[in-house]
């Protein structure tokens, strides 16, 4: 047992040693009594471990489980993950808040247009008109619609495929 470590012997038994190591061990075996014994001992343990049987649960094990199943509904996978949904809602809320803050800070042009009684409404109208023509609006709109479509599909497919359990 001078040349081979215990780990090398286990790797040899598991078949995970290198080809070179395997050849070295095989060549050393006929003339090395200690190596033969060490390997045989580990092989015996390996074979005994392979023959170990699983523990048996009680006879009613499967029945107990089946009796608990009728009230359970499948948690079907979601098309729109909850994380993505939360992230999107957070982004939309932040964007809306940013827009409100931005509009409130726009320069007041109401005196020039003669609508002094409703300055904020005037700002909103001006800002919205300019936003409609912007490509950003189109992108945000598409994203929002996609999200709503996926959420709708998610709900629809869940309802369609959730199993109607028969008690």
């Amino acid at each position: 047992m001078k040349n081979f470590t215990e780990e090398q012997l286990w790797n040899f038994i598991d078949g995970s040693c290198t080809e070179e190591e395997r050849q070295q061990i095989e060549q050393a075996l006929p003339e090395n009594e200690a190596l033969r014994l060490a390997l045989a001992e580990r092989m015996a343990l390996h074979q005994a471990l392979q023959k170990i049987e699983a523990e048996e649960p009680s006879m009613r094990f499967a029945t107990n489980i089946m009796e608990r199943l009728p009230n359970i509904r499948f948690a079907l996978p979601q098309l729109v993950s909850p994380k993505l949904r939360r992230g999107f809602l957070l982004a939309m809320t932040s964007l809306s808040a940013a827009i409100v803050v931005m509009v409130l800070n726009l320069p007041d042009t109401s005196s020039a247009s003669g609508t002094e009684s409703m300055p904020y409404v005037n700002r909103w109208v001006e800002w919205t008109t300019s936003l409609v023509n912007s490509p950003i609006t189109l992108i945000i709109g598409c994203m929002g619609l996609s999200f709503l479509l996926l959420t709708f599909l998610d709900g629809y497919l869940k309802k369609r495929f959730v199993l109607k359990k028969t008690a």
Binding site: F61, I65, A75, L76, P77, F161
Partner: peptide, 13 residues
């Protein structure tokens, strides 16, 4: 038993 119940709940995923 809890394992098999959990597995059943999440089998579709």
């Amino acid at each position: 038993q809890d394992v098999f119940i959990k597995v059943y709940r999440t089998l579709a995923s």
